[in-house]
Amino acid sequence: MIELIERIRTATGPLAIRAGGSKDWYGEATSGEVLDVSANRGIVSYEPGELVLTAKCGTPLAEIEALLGQNGQMLGFEPPRFTGSATLGGTLACGMSGPRRPYAGSARDFVLGMEILDGNGQYLKFGGQVMKNVAGYDVSRLMVGALGTLGVLLQASLKVLPRPQAELTLQFECDEAEAIRRTNEWAGKPLPLSATAWLSGVLSVRLSGAHSSVAAAHRKLGGEETAHGAEFWAGLRDHRAAFFHDDAPLWRLSLPSTAAPLDLPGRQLIAWGGAERWLKSDASAAEIRARAAAHGGHATLYAGDKGCGVFHPLPEALLKYQQRLKRQFDPRGILNPGRMYP
């Protein structure tokens, strides 16, 4: 770590923070010398009875998930791994959560504390290893999704969850509007939902919990049980499913879950009970963004020509305060400059 501190303090130009490189493609391009943080790895502490795991940010997610698995626990936000090299730090910096998110919480929801180096190479520690902590502003959660532009993430403590006893995936044939309606209605009932996805006229629903309650929910909902549930959700979580693999630009629209069908050209995969809509479309960025905004959400470009900007433009007032925060944590503007907003 002392080495990292030195690198930041003596930097004369921008630094591009990189660990596993599994998300090099995400966000705006940033120039700068690579600051490799992958050597800062290892699980620092893990107490299953506390539901808390602390790890250095270069730790591969695979290592963390393996240890949790041995103890019947898991990362509740089911982060995407994309390739095997995804690390804890990269996952938190990108703020990415997987299929379980609407029902269990997001990456930032599970963060309890963080240690970082700011843009002056200053070591700072926020939050802690306890479930509840309101001392000081919630800077650790502010770091989640900030794409390393506010600090180099060194170490994080996360709340973890017990793994459900049983999981089962049901499938239903229905159209888009019907899928949106059903998933929202079901989410308003005490059902053990843990993921939903609609693709090509098929709605897949995952149930998680005690054996008996999963079985009872199956009886209530009907549908066809599929034997390939685990693969299906992993394919969605890690973007390995065929849907993601063609040359059309890939957009992620984050919308209120009840937003009406988008009516945009292209193909869609609707996850998160309607709140996350993956769109493969050649429609113009302007059109997609306008549609997302009209529905009360925002659109992010995952793959395609980044000329139109990756992230949804911010209203002026928000941008002003975000820029001030950036200057506060990184006065020299050297941490991943431009990776988030130019």
Binding site: G95, L142, G145, L255, G297, H298, F311, H312, L314
Partner: peptide
Amino acid sequence: GALDIPGYDL
């Protein structure tokens, strides 16, 4: 009302 917001998590 979406589950996440663009930009920093204000």
